[in-house]
Design a protein around this nucleic acid. Structure first.
Lengths: 165, 165
DNA sequence: ATAAGTGCAAAGTCTTTGCATCATT
DNA sequence: AATGATGCAAAGACTTTGCACTTAT
């Protein structure tokens, strides 16, 4: 039905992992491949679902563990949107960007706008933050949802779906 | 031990709630009072804990329900920080500001810096977002944590603590 | 009187962790 | 061979929901 992770050549992925000083496992390579191939921030469960066909025995713990590690070393970026119950992850490539999120349907798109890190004025006695990153999200209504007026519930990952096995 | 919600006069709170067209209940008034009195974004459980002494029978469901409603109508702002497992809420007053968060100890402080809503360039076919708000968080190391090098686990709310009853 | 809010209990969902086994260096 | 990663199972934590009862308008 789909072969999403083959969009990126695995040898290149393996080389990248090695250069990061990480051990090479098939699961890790494929997780990073899926993450890189994604055009939007995706959840751990999204990755898990996509890999289920290739690795029937893969567990979501492994996906979480690798995503946490990728985030820690800066390979991935974790995004916590207000209307998404689960964290989303995105490969941190050279092009730095942010996201606009529809507060009605949950749809999110990448936007080029980046405010950078502005001049920061801390409260008194709090001079010392060493800023290493930032998050910036725009919330509003997408084109489709501007016709409707109501607010939706928080988006769930819908783990119950069983379209593959 | 403490009387945090009395920092703000309840009659004023009630007036505010009425002007919003909301029904008046003691729980709702006190929840909003605690939210307004807080100097930092706080979690639903923080509010629940503070009110436990005043309302021994208050339930956290009620806190969540009211916070969700406040957020929906724009009275409160919901913040989802990367290293906080629970959502934080903040009264949305006149002064608009954002937060710097320590990625090691979880400490967060308000900063005056606001990037505003910059010129947004959407991907092709996605012209129509009507932006109504934005989130901006700075991540880094606070003064104390700049001496240490390791990354911490995600901050939990620690519901097990039983310092009051 | 009617409509909405609350508390209780329970469930649902996302995420993490202990441990034995397996794979990579 | 030794260290690290994985899978399984279970637990932990945050949040939501159904329902009966109470409360505000």
């Amino acid at each position: 039905m789909n072969a999403p992770e083959s969009a990126t050549a695995l040898p290149a992925i393996d080389k990248e992992l090695k250069s990061l000083g990480l051990r090479l496992t098939p699961q890790r390579s494929h997780i990073l491949a899926v993450l890189k191939a994604a055009e939007r921030p995706i959840s751990a469960y999204d990755i898990y679902s996509q890999l289920k066909s290739t690795f029937p025995h893969i567990s979501i713990d492994t996906v979480y563990r690798n995503l946490t590690m990728f985030t820690t070393i800066g390979v991935a970026l974790q995004i916590n949107l207000q209307n998404s119950a689960s964290a989303l992850f995105e490969y941190q490539g050279e092009r730095h960007h942010h996201h606009a999120v529809c507060i009605r349907c949950g749809k999110n798109v990448c936007v080029e706008a980046c405010p950078g890190v502005p001049e920061v004025k801390y409260p008194q006695g709090e001079q010392g933050f060493h800023i290493t990153g930032h998050a910036f999200e725009l919330y509003g209504f997408c084109a489709e949802c501007q016709q409707h007026g109501t607010y939706p519930a928080r988006q769930r990952a819908d783990r119950i779906r069983k379209d593959d096995d």
